[in-house]
Nucleic acid binder design. Structure first.
Lengths: 234, 234
DNA sequence: GAGTGGTCTAGACCACAAC
DNA sequence: TTGTGGTCTAGACCACTCC
């Protein structure tokens, strides 16, 4: 782990171990340099990371302060890798409805930037959080980039699996959100009336080398899914 | 304007002037150092900024590449200051339904971190984009932090006004998103049936000094509002 | 004016990719 | 092995806040 990441983590931990309320002032940069025995640049970089994550904010000429933590139960769209990752505060559960290797149709080809003969994992899952139906997800993973998956892994977090086994380094993602009217089949899964309105998310995840490896669409239950974006102008 | 911001802007401009397609490789860091006659750190910082904005991605050992631009018509939740700012590609229009100075109720006090006797601008606006009803917005601004506003300014972009007049430096924001069933009054404004489902956003903007200055709730028209988040793991 | 964050430099060295 | 991005250092100086 890199120095600046390490220091960012330690500062983060100390904030939440001490349960510092929003607005609390942290040690200044000079003190942090002494405390961690690194150069100024490294401290500044660690702080920039925490600022981007919504943990702190810095005020020139004044100090470093703790930012308000996001409300519990809201999925952070900027930092989360989908679902399991960010709802740690709520007990989750996943039901795998389909797990197959398929050939991509033109929509999938366009989103994953692949040919029609490439092998693709297709996974359909129903997600629960806090005992409630959270969303219905259709995912497509390129087998070429993720050589091994199975139904058991799909019950948990695929992202956790592929990153921890070193198969994939996640780089960046594009997420598109809109509302749609659900069809009969989706309505059955979400236990909602046909023609209900739901939040629809279309997302593509790329490796750190810039290759798309996951295309997913998720239809979220209108009453149970909530989202959050904490951003910073700097 | 700071060097690294300036360079980031120039690189950004050159990408879109040349209409470089996604995946195009840019000059390497050494070349950029020569081209702009600055230190390595400054180039790296400019590139980090562009990467955060979703413009480029960098691959260690390989190069710097142009990222896919977000689809047109989707409001970028991570970078936008609401509405006018980010839908530059679509013609917009705003109808001001109310413009008053009020005293905050407890909900507004909690969100703006102020007392019950502080003066607050209350602005109710109906937003249009591309000729369609986009959303109904209720905004609360602290008069203490934004001394002057009027109905004319509210027809345009309040954010543009307060930043360009130097009244406010925007620091960061919290946005919360969920779905709700609209009431009769909202339904009339949005020209939708009562009990339609709509996307509801609750947002708070803070100054760079960490003071909340704007609390807004927006009910977006289910058929016309679309959103996007481009994020980066680094 | 004293204190605090932010920018910038020049240069060394590390990590990863492509050949 | 070479080229490329990424990290880290020590130190100078700038910009802003608060007293």
């Amino acid at each position: 782990m890199l120095k600046y990441q390490n220091i960012a983590q330690k500062i983060y931990d100390s904030i939440y171990q001490q349960q510092l309320p929003k607005g609390s002032q942290l040690a200044n940069i000079e003190e942090l340099i002494n405390q961690y025995q690194v150069s100024r640049t490294t401290i500044v970089k660690a702080l920039a990371r925490l600022e981007r994550q919504g943990v702190i904010y810095q005020v020139q000429g004044s100090g470093i302060f703790v930012r308000q933590r996001k409300k519990s139960g809201y999925l952070n769209l900027a930092t989360s890798h989908g679902f399991t990752d960010d709802l740690g505060d709520l007990p989750g559960f996943t039901q795998v409805l389909a797990f197959d290797v398929i050939r991509p149709n033109t929509e999938i080809q366009a989103n994953l930037n692949c040919n029609s003969d490439e092998e693709i994992y297709y996974i359909k899952r129903l997600r629960y959080a806090d005992g409630k139906i959270y969303g219905l997800e259709h995912s497509y993973y390129r087998k070429k980039l993720i050589p091994y998956l199975n139904k058991e892994i799909a019950k948990g977090s695929i992202f956790e699996y592929i990153t921890q086994t070193g198969q994939i380094n996640i780089g960046f993602s594009d997420k598109y959100i809109e509302l749609l009217t659900i069809d009969e089949s989706t309505a059955r899964y979400l236990k909602l009336p046909v023609s209900s309105t739901a939040l629809f998310m279309h997302e593509i995840f790329y490796t750190s080398a810039g290759e798309p490896f996951d295309f997913s669409t998720i239809i979220y239950h209108k009453d149970n899914a909530k989202f959050c974006v904490q951003s910073h102008a700097k």
